[in-house]
Amino acid sequence: MFDVGLGEMAVLVVLALVIFGDRLPQVAGQAGRMLRQVRQMANSARSDLQEGLGPEFKDFDIADLNPKTFVRKHLLEDDDTYTPPRANGKIFDDEPSYATAAGRLDHGERPPFDNEAT
């Protein structure tokens, strides 16, 4: 979490002991209470949002709003209606998206462009 190693964590603990000294247990308790309150507020906001959206969004999750999660869930999940092309049991990874009915474009070749279309 936060990409903090054992050495950095030890330095942070020593630094906290030097700065807060004998008040460290009080500060840690306050930090724990604050974290608990933030979690309660987040859970309350989530439940209020789910209530406000209605029963048709009962399976709605806040994480679905993350673009990576949205793409993974809606575009990359297995879908019964789509079967990707396969060769030797593997999906074609090298199939370009710009392949045309007339054939593929050579590397560096520009696709056809119609000046009068715009």
Rank of each mutant, 00 (worst) to 15 (best):
T81Q: 12
A87K: 09
A102R: 05
H107A: 14
A16L: 07
P112I: 01
E51K: 12
P55E: 07
A10G: 07
T69A: 13
P85S: 01
R86L: 06
T100D: 05
T83G: 05
Y98R: 04
A45G: 08
P112V: 01
P85Q: 00
G89Y: 02
L24I: 02
R110Q: 10
S44H: 14
E56V: 03
P111Y: 04
A101P: 00
S47E: 13
A101L: 11
P55I: 04
I62N: 05
S97W: 09
Y98F: 08
A16K: 04
G54F: 00
D48V: 08
R46I: 14
Q26L: 14
V11I: 15
L12W: 12
Y82N: 05
P112M: 00
L76A: 09
L49S: 08
D61I: 06
P111K: 08
G29W: 08
Q37K: 14
A99C: 05
P25H: 02
A42G: 12
R23N: 09
E77K: 14
Q26I: 11
Y82V: 10
D22G: 06
E56G: 01
N88V: 05
A63Q: 12
F20D: 01
N88E: 09
K68R: 14
L75M: 10
I62H: 09
N43C: 13
N43A: 13
T69V: 15
T69Y: 09
P67E: 04
L75V: 05
E95A: 02
A87N: 05
Q26D: 13
D22M: 06
Y98N: 11
R110W: 05
V13C: 10
K68I: 13
N66S: 11
V71D: 09
F113R: 04
V14S: 08
R104D: 03
D94R: 01
E109L: 03
K73C: 03
R36A: 15
K68E: 14
K68L: 14
N88C: 07
L53I: 03
T81F: 12
I91C: 00
T100M: 10
T69Q: 10
P67T: 03
R72L: 11
P84G: 01
G21S: 03
G52H: 06
L53K: 01
M41R: 15
R86I: 04
A31P: 05
D93T: 00
L75T: 05
G89C: 02
R104C: 02
R110S: 07
N66L: 12
P85N: 01
K68M: 14
Q40C: 11
A42C: 14
K58M: 04
M34A: 15
E95P: 00
R110I: 06
N43L: 15
D59G: 04
L65M: 09
D93L: 02
E77T: 14
P84K: 02
A10P: 04
V13R: 06
P25R: 02
